[in-house]
Amino acid sequence: MIEWGVERATPNNGKVALVTGAARGIGLGIAAWLIAEGWQVVLADTDRVRGSKVAKALGDNAWFVAMDISQESQVVVGVAEVLGQFGRLDALINNAAIADPHNPPLESLELNQWNRVLAVNLSGPLLLAKYCAPYLRAHYGSIVNLTSTRTQQSEPNSEAYAASKGGLLALTHALAASLGPDVRVNAVSPGWIDARDLAERRTAPLSNLEHAQHPAGRVGTVEDVAGLVAWLLSGNAGFVTGQEFVVDGGMTRKMIYL
């Protein structure tokens, strides 16, 4: 498990990636993986204290920028800071989101609650793509959007989250068409990923039953997601764009009758 440090860092490869929502969870795992492969990674998050702390722990190839991606002015300033610091941008990973999939029952769902989820989960990635696109084009870069298996299946009372992630999946192939061939755009849809901090995973481990329900035999890890994102950013995925990649241990293909 990647925690905060990077165990196998390689020399800087000159490429710069911007990872949103990178102060914890999947975003932090992606940042750590890319740093280990030699990327310069900009960690963007609203949590200034933790974001600065983890960037310091990740080493010289990590740099933190505070950003609320739902605010256009903050996106403009944040992207300008990245370009001012590094002079280029090769990859954008739209991971930041309001991650709680549950909202109040439909009859009690307030419009401002709905709008807030869509502002962060859908409008934020659009704004980042808009302002990063010229710099990504210059280096034949790539965008990876973190969607969810809830683009394909739902629980009750999850309208805002499901709609935002479904919209982000559609935005993915729309951007691929608009930005190609200079920029590739793909989506990664995680299922159940245990993205808790290491200390919490140790004190409250998941049960054998929780692992065993997955056809793969276990719940996912941040590394399962990060490795796929890294591949999508690489030259080995040069013919891949506009696609969704599901990382869920087979759960969306499992027939459940009870």
Rank of each mutant, 00 (worst) to 15 (best):
Ile256Ser: 11
Arg8Pro: 01
Asp45Cys: 08
Arg201Met: 06
Asn186Thr: 08
His214Phe: 15
Lys130Val: 01
Met67Leu: 11
Arg48Ile: 13
Ile2Met: 08
Asn112Phe: 14
Ala44Gln: 02
Leu233Tyr: 03
Leu168Arg: 03
Gln152Trp: 04
Ala97Gly: 09
Ile2Leu: 13
Asn186Met: 08
Ala119Pro: 07
Gly217Leu: 02
Leu209Pro: 08
Ala204His: 06
Leu206Lys: 08
Asp194Trp: 13
Lys130Trp: 02
Gly29Leu: 14
Met251Cys: 02
Ala129Pro: 15
Asn145Met: 10
Thr149Leu: 07
Ser123Pro: 01
Phe245Ser: 01
Ala66Arg: 15
Asp90Trp: 06
Ala91Leu: 13
Phe86Lys: 11
Glu210Pro: 12
Trp192Tyr: 09
Gln152Met: 08
Trp4Tyr: 05
Gly25Gln: 03
Asn103Cys: 13
Thr241Ser: 00
Gly191Ile: 13
Val49Tyr: 02
Ser123His: 04
Gly59Val: 01
Lys130Ala: 00
Gly29Thr: 12
Asp100Val: 09
Ala160Leu: 06
Ser178Ala: 06
Gln74Glu: 13
Asp194Gln: 14
Glu223Ala: 10
Ser123Val: 10
Ala44Asp: 04
Ala226Arg: 15
Tyr140Val: 12
Asn145Phe: 05
Gln74Leu: 11
Asp194Gly: 14
Tyr257Cys: 11
Thr46His: 00
Ser189Cys: 12
Glu37Leu: 14
Ala32Glu: 11
Gly14Gln: 09
Lys254Ser: 14
Glu37Cys: 07
Phe239Leu: 15
Gln71Ala: 12
His102Thr: 13
Arg8Lys: 07
Leu206Ala: 04
Ala138His: 05
Ile30Phe: 06
Lys56Gln: 09
Val6Arg: 05
Ala230Ser: 14
Gly84His: 12
Ser178Trp: 04
Val222Lys: 06
Asn145Gly: 09
Arg116Thr: 10
Ala96Ile: 03
Asn236Arg: 12
Thr221Ala: 09
Arg48Pro: 07
